[in-house]
Design a protein around this nucleic acid. Structure first.
Lengths: 230, 230
DNA sequence: CGTACACTTGAGACCATTCAAACTTGGTGG
DNA sequence: CCACCAAGTTTGAATGGTCTCAAGTGTACG
């Protein structure tokens, strides 16, 4: 029996808006689920039947074209909210990048609960507004920034995110990022090809701005230079 | 004295969630304002002091880089909501594209009112979720679609919007769009240059897919062809 | 030790941009 | 009514940044 009382994201997820009594009610309509890396939780275009809180792991939120071109429009870390409440269709797919644990709710049940709990709605609204700001800023990157600006921005943004809530994997100081994804996913986030990402990273390495200690790690050597580039 | 009772967006804006009594309270903290084309209502990066409902006219929501590169991340039409509630900073600028009328609220007063009126919050949440879906779909266009795909998608999207709520200006059937903006703004929406937009439009004209009866009008001749391109 | 997979590097092609010039359009005043 | 002007738009030629395709290198894992 899993319980909200012992949940590690109890206070940082939207559940933080609820009292223990309210949480007990929510607990009844929710259930936990584990996902393996690569597993899809939500399919783009399908009916929106699920919403979820991330408990552990990292997931990607994507939209794609029929021919396979894909764009990652969001990265979900522990305590982040997933899914499309108050709507019939899921606009994006959600896929686990690492093994993950989520707290699932049937969308309709969640909608009903939310309508009766204004504080939860406020919290949710604040989160979604933050997401909207983020995705709009990202639109500027995708449409107007050059390859090197994109990579510089990406590294700084990830560093930021690591600082905020330990999303970007363990075992690094503020300046050594252990990223939970490979080049292809970086490319899908930045709207470029894998080759261009690679070239830009080696360029930054050559210039002594970053180091690449291992495949999935980036160490920031000269943060000021990165900021100038982004 | 302006009154919500006679407001033309009374039912289509977020105010639709409120009773007449509640609306009277909201009316006290709001005021009307007219904007001339080109006037800025909200500045990116400044403190978020205002939120608003659009009553008349069309406005653009933009983010930009210091060097002037700009991306339009949203178009606001009558009954649309503007601004950043529950947050300190405005992430985007809002500029009137045509002469416009808006219903303004001090952000903090609005936040307070919203917290006490769950139905308003639900409505707002639904709207913001819709905006998020839209902007995420647009990210895919900006990062992965070719110039011709972008223009085709744009025309269809605008046609859709015209059909939904008479945003895209008067005097047109479903297939003749009178757009409230010029080539530069199309470019800023699509993340391209003005020249590329122009070239793609003439290309579509040559192929008999659209006609360009006047500077700001686009007539869809072969909708199926457009859909195939998008 | 060998194989598979991810990443890097290189050469060439291509699409969108840049810069420049010509053309429309709509408005103003002679 | 027409000439003129300014602003917006179209068109052209050349450039350049990113992608594509292909081969090479490295790293993890059996």
């Amino acid at each position: 029996m899993t319980s909200c009382a012992t949940c590690i994201v109890r206070n940082s997820a939207i559940c933080g808006a609820l009292s223990n009594a309210e949480l007990a009610t929510l607990n009844k309509i929710g259930r936990r689920r584990t996902l393996e890396a690569g597993e899809t939780l939500i399919w783009e275009g399908e009916e929106s039947v699920l919403v979820a809180n991330v408990i552990d792991g990292v997931l990607k939120v994507t939209t794609s074209l029929k021919d396979g071109r894909e764009q990652i429009v969001g990265i979900a870390c522990p305590s982040d909210f997933l899914g499309r409440p108050f709507g019939e269709n899921a606009g994006q797919s959600v896929v686990a990048l690492s093994d993950a644990k989520v707290c699932l709710f049937a969308r309709e049940a969640f909608d009903g609960f939310a309508r009766e709990h204004p504080d939860l709605q406020t919290t949710l609204l604040e989160r979604i507004l933050g997401e909207l700001d983020l995705s709009r800023r990202w639109m500027l990157l995708l449409s107007r920034k050059t390859a090197s600006e994109r990579v510089a921005t990406f590294i700084l943004e990830m560093s930021q995110r690591l600082a905020d809530h330990g999303c970007a994997a363990p075992g690094g100081s503020i300046d050594t990022l252990r990223l939970p994804f490979g080049r292809q996913q970086m490319a899908d986030i930045l709207g470029m090809t894998i080759e261009t990402v690679s070239r830009q990273l080696t360029e930054l390495k050559k210039r002594g701005v970053i180091r690449l200690p291992s495949r999935q790690a980036i160490e920031i050597v000269d943060r000021a230079a990165l900021e100038a580039l982004a």
